[in-house]
Simulated scan of single mutants.
Amino acid sequence: MESTKPAEPFLRHVEKDVLIPKRMREKAKERCVEKVEAFNHCCKESGFLMVLKCREQNAALKECLTTYYKDPVFYEECKQEYLQEKAEFEKTGIPTKKRQQKLPTSM
């Protein structure tokens, strides 16, 4: 008996090539936060010489981010999060950002 795997939802070009990668970049920056902070700190301290002085921090940051960008499991995780948000929007008509905003306490 063949297992019937649910069909993958159709993703538009902009979803595959823009929206999901954007989510991946945001989440990768969160996961590489120490390296992001180290690079930012170095840049602030170095001014115009940051290109020369911050090579080590820049290389560490690139390596960390690239590890996530190339990880198919991470891509799938970000894709599933995107699909859940998309389904919720289609159901409610409310964008995620507005759903997360707090309602006023007094009217």
Rank of each mutant, 00 (worst) to 15 (best):
M1T: 13
E2G: 04
S3I: 15
T4E: 11
K5D: 11
P6R: 12
A7H: 07
P9I: 13
P9D: 01
P9Q: 02
L11T: 02
L11G: 00
L11K: 00
R12G: 13
R12Y: 15
H13F: 15
V14D: 15
V18R: 07
I20H: 07
K22E: 09
K22M: 09
R23W: 05
R23V: 09
K27Q: 14
A28T: 03
K29Y: 09
R31P: 00
V33H: 08
E37I: 05
A38P: 03
C43D: 04
E45K: 14
L49A: 10
V51R: 13
L52N: 08
C54G: 03
C54T: 02
R55F: 00
R55P: 00
E56Q: 14
N58P: 05
K62P: 04
C64H: 04
L65H: 04
T67L: 08
Y68W: 06
Y68C: 07
Y68Q: 01
Y69N: 01
D71P: 01
P72N: 04
V73F: 02
F74T: 08
F74Y: 05
E76N: 13
E77V: 02
E77G: 03
C78L: 08
K79R: 15
Q80Y: 03
Q84E: 12
K86D: 05
K86M: 07
A87V: 01
F89G: 02
E90H: 05
T92H: 10
G93E: 11
P95N: 13
K97Q: 13
K98Y: 13
R99P: 03
Q100N: 10
Q101Y: 12
K102Q: 14
K102W: 06
K102P: 04
L103Y: 06
L103N: 03
L103P: 05
P104Y: 10
T105E: 12
S106W: 10
M107G: 06
M107L: 11
M107R: 04
